[in-house]
Design a binder for these strands. Structure first.
Lengths: 210, 210
DNA sequence: ACACCGACCGAGCGATCGCTCGGTCAGGGA
DNA sequence: TCCCTGACCGAGCGATCGCTCGGTCGGTGT
């Protein structure tokens, strides 16, 4: 599939959609992420971000032109990463809607555990985005939602799923998976594999998988 | 002051848990609610709330001592209302966990449609609450969650539900219902009764109701 | 040797924040 | 009549906001 990839700065481009490498955020982005998670976008000051990044305020502005640009950097990066992984998860499943549903849901779940903070900020800070950023984010989010919806509908059409409400079921499944970023903790009682096992079963039940 | 707020938005005790009276919020609370929904707590200024309420800034402070008190008034009122309705919905169902589950879920769904804005603010503005308010809110939210969890577990114990993961199923069901407040619109394509019909079926499927 | 450049910062800009001081004014009880 | 009370507001407080000006400094190319 990807033949000539070479390792680059310790990161391999051709990794499986199931695995998410360590996040390599710049110091300002990492600091902004931690602040936004704790206080929200409007509740965070540029001075606090700079302090957390080990920079002065002008030093921070040397790398990013505005507070909004920090939010944009976090949100856009993580949404493209999600879509990239989900597309590969769907492609790997081939034509069977049941298998595709399983792969997409597993991908959504693993993403919202491995990229918990960024996913949390993206989904809760929509009101903090300027119109341009918000529009771009919503377009990506809708594209992600459509992949789930199409798979559920196709599964119902082909008799793999039994739910009488495919549209609502698709939204419910996405909601469940996105919410993982608001309660999952690496030191919690469920491991990532267990979360996938449990929630994949729940999502299958929700769409009436036979 | 806050005790008065609770009564202000309260409904007559004799009406059914299924019906929610028209919201009776004071002008400042109604203005704060609209602002918080649109811009979030930290993104809203006291001047904007006052303007929307048809008051000057000191006029606003004559009725509420702080911006935080407005948030507290909105969140506490609506959570007490939810718990009150849910308790009556559960009591009416008697001893059968299947019926109790149906009633609680229907109550959750109707609440998140009729009190959409307040429920949305309560669930998305936790980071804007001062520690005291946050603690009180979370205690009420956990109590609500426990009613769902206990019912699911009892349903599994008594053979009414088949899910192997009652705890996760309870969280998933609550998540689905709470999320209604973030997409439901009175002029949308689904009426409240249709939303109840669809999502009750999805929630039953999620817990594996037989 | 020296010009240049990216990385960074002390100080502070104008705007706006939550909140308050010191009132005005209509209506009601004695 | 007279003053009390609750409802309200013009003006503005000190603090803090996002952001910028005018630099310093160490490394690099020539």
């Amino acid at each position: 599939m990807l033949a000539t990839d070479h390792e680059e700065a310790g990161n391999t481009v051709s990794e499986s959609w199931r695995s998410f490498g360590e996040q390599r955020l710049s110091a300002p982005l990492a600091a902004a992420l931690a602040c936004f998670v704790e206080q929200g976008y409007h509740g965070t000051t540029i001075r606090r971000i700079a302090e957390r990044a080990g920079l002065s305020v002008p030093g921070l502005y040397h790398h990013y032109p505005s507070k909004q640009a920090l939010l944009e950097g976090l949100v856009m990066t993580v949404m493209h990463e999600l879509l990239d992984h989900t597309r590969r998860a769907a492609a790997e499943a081939g034509d069977d809607p049941g298998r595709r549903f399983d792969n997409i849901v597993e991908c959504l779940l693993r993403f919202h555990m491995h990229r918990r903070d960024q996913a949390f900020v993206a989904s809760t800070e929509i009101r903090g985005m300027d119109p341009g950023v918000r529009g771009a984010y919503i377009a990506l989010r809708d594209e992600q939602q459509r992949m789930v919806d199409d798979t559920v509908r196709e599964g119902v059409d082909r008799g793999a799923f039994a739910t009488p409400y495919p549209r609502d079921a698709g939204r419910a499944v996405t909601t469940m998976c996105v919410a993982v970023s608001s309660w999952y903790r690496p030191d919690g009682e469920l491991s990532p594999d267990e979360v996938v096992e449990h929630y994949l079963a729940l999502c299958r039940a929700t769409v009436g998988a036979r």
